[in-house]
């Protein structure tokens, strides 16, 4: 299921403002790629351009190409809705649908994207997704209760379950743990390690230890100053980035000298 993503010469704009400039990188299948860098350097913007969520923002547009297994997502004729069905996303703040039960939250993507399924099939999807998100044991007795009644960490895992229920090929995560306590954070890191078996994962994180713990590859973004575009400074094996980065700025950032 997992797929390779090739980003080439990608410029990302908000209206006339060039937020991210000239990114080229390859994201390997069945691996975790971490994106790190100081605030405002365009990590979220870049991540959102990988599943065409960027264009949801008024004025949002990109130049260049993002290819998944050779197919450019930004080709004319490619429907962003299809793109997002294949490339799921988990946001910084847990955002379960407040009017829906836990069960309905998990199957929301399946149901509302128009797939018809029998009740028993939906039940399977719910159990599989919640198992996959390490949440099944905690909620299996209250699937009909509102999703908003869970704790923050549980809500975030519910959102992960919801994202993997539609069986995407890639999972994008934008600081998924930044609103969570350390225990929930560990639960989600474990989960990422499991999900790696099946999915290509890209995770933005502010937490250097987290990047080092969960990822196989790490990309470091930086920005020359406010109003300047963010750039990919270097990208390499996580072990290499955290031991012997080839750029001075990366080393400074990782050792906590700025950012």
């Amino acid at each position: 299921m997992a797929k390779r993503i090739d980003v080439k010469d990608l410029n990302i704009y908000y209206g006339d403002f060039l937020a991210v400039e000239d990114i080229s990188m390859t994201i390997e299948p069945r691996s975790v790629t971490a994106l790190i860098g100081p605030s405002g350097c365009g990590k979220s913007t870049f991540l959102r351009s990988l599943n065409r969520m960027h264009e949801v923002v008024p004025g949002g547009r990109v130049e260049g190409s993002v290819a998944v297994d050779g197919q450019d997502l930004y080709d004319r004729g490619v429907d962003p809705v299809d793109v997002r069905r294949q490339i799921g996303m988990v946001f910084q703040r847990p955002n379960p649908f407040p009017t829906m039960s836990i069960y309905d939250n998990v199957v929301a993507g399946v149901r509302l994207s128009g797939t018809r399924m029998k009740r028993s099939e939906l039940d399977d999807v719910v159990e599989r997704s919640l198992q996959g998100a390490n949440l099944w044991n905690e909620v299996k007795d209250r699937l009909t209760k509102p999703g908003a009644g869970l704790s923050g960490g549980q809500q975030q895992r519910l959102c992960i379950a919801r994202a993997i229920a539609v069986e995407p090929q890639v999972l994008l995560m934008d600081e998924p743990c930044s609103a969570l306590d350390p225990i929930s954070t560990l639960a989600i890191e474990d989960l990422i390690a499991n999900l790696k078996q099946e999915y290509t994962i890209v995770i933005v994180t502010h937490n250097m230890q987290q990047a080092a713990r969960v990822s196989d590859f790490t990309g470091f973004f930086n920005i020359a100053g406010t109003g300047k575009p963010g750039k990919l400074i270097e990208m390499d094996d996580t072990a290499k980035i955290f031991s012997t980065p080839s750029v001075k700025a990366t080393e400074d950032y990782i050792s906590g000298r700025f950012g």
């Binding site: 294949q86 946001f91 649908f97 407040p98 929301a108 919801r162």
Partner: peptide, 13 residues
Amino acid sequence: NDLREAAFALGIP
């Protein structure tokens, strides 16, 4: 807006 984005990200039209 989070909710709209959450839905879009699931591939919901």
